[in-house]
Design a binder for these strands. Sequence first.
DNA 1: ACCTGAACACCGTTCAAGT
DNA 2: ACCTGAACACCGTTCAAGT
Lengths: 210, 210
Amino acid sequence: MSTNGQRPYHHGDLRRALIQAGSKIIEERGLAGLSLREVARVAGVSHTAPYRHFQDKADLLAAIAQVGFEQLTDEAGKAVQLHNHDPRKQFVAASIQYILFGVRNPRMAHLLFGGIINMRTAPRVLKQASWAAFQLVETIINNGKRAGIFIDRDTMALAVTTWSGIHGLAQLISGGYLSRLAATERQVETLGKMVCELLLTGILKPDDKK
Amino acid sequence: MSTNGQRPYHHGDLRRALIQAGSKIIEERGLAGLSLREVARVAGVSHTAPYRHFQDKADLLAAIAQVGFEQLTDEAGKAVQLHNHDPRKQFVAASIQYILFGVRNPRMAHLLFGGIINMRTAPRVLKQASWAAFQLVETIINNGKRAGIFIDRDTMALAVTTWSGIHGLAQLISGGYLSRLAATERQVETLGKMVCELLLTGILKPDDKK
DNA sequence: ACCTGAACACCGTTCAAGT
DNA sequence: ACCTGAACACCGTTCAAGT
């Protein structure tokens, strides 16, 4: 009798339920609408129950962000695997996925990169999740260097430059700073591809590249 | 007697005082530490006084952000004027100033670009202030095209690409995502110049640029 | 171990009232 | 016009208490 119906201590995995509830609230109502009490309400527990699983609100946000980083890296990573033979296509495809993630999940992108979380003092697992995105870029760059396509410079240098370009574009679009240029998802893709191409070739005329 | 000492209705310019108090709180304690009540406290008025000058908290934040955008554009603009003859130097100098602004004012950068403000529904003056930064990039690009240095592509395309690269780098550094690579201001400058150079020349080998 | 309810010091916002 | 004080419905967090 006590084993069917509702389980005694909730779902048995309140931690996951709280992270899920938090993600849902962020997506629907934005970060401003996310309170610890509301998360507890959605999960169906008292407003102090989350403290069993998270130190404080920042800790819950970090856990939500970790899932977000994993999703971002996962989606971009799949694009890389689709073009296993062509580093150039890997770069473009992964970049488009990165940008589309920001467009489709603007509030999550806001949480991941908007300064809400202090990365310098973040939990180890969260730092690792954010590094994974960077490592993906490094992988692509190394593929391209091995294939003799990219210039012979420090991998870190090329990775930082390309990541900055793609990341910046994603943030500007999802933040609404380029709403004139990229309103639809098709326009976003076109703009993304263009930026990718220019990152690859540069903006200087060949003559002026000494 | 009533004309000296404290003036009857505060400084006579409470609006400016509130913006100033808000900026100070953000710089010292971060956005999380900024409440409308605390701003009023710092300005020395009751907690409802701000509502005479701002519709709500978001409206005050927008006003603070406007000042921030103006400062950012101003600092980058000065760098442009210092190199009035060389678009390439203009680009690098303005970019470094943009990046340093983010490093020196991380909380303000967080407010300007972190998604706290919805740019799509922001007050007209705020949109204009953010556009001014973009227009600065366009100016530099046009200078370079007129000088025959940059490739013959749509100004908007080149401006979006370069702005994305610089903006992305600034955000990644000030957000602490590159703390390994750019800890000191000198390292930030070195990294910034490197990214600028690669944005100009691209990362593909000359042979592969078809 | 896991959860609850009362309590505390805060918020943003509204509204009637004062000069 | 410009500002105040009380009031309302919320927060995050703590703590003693319950199973």
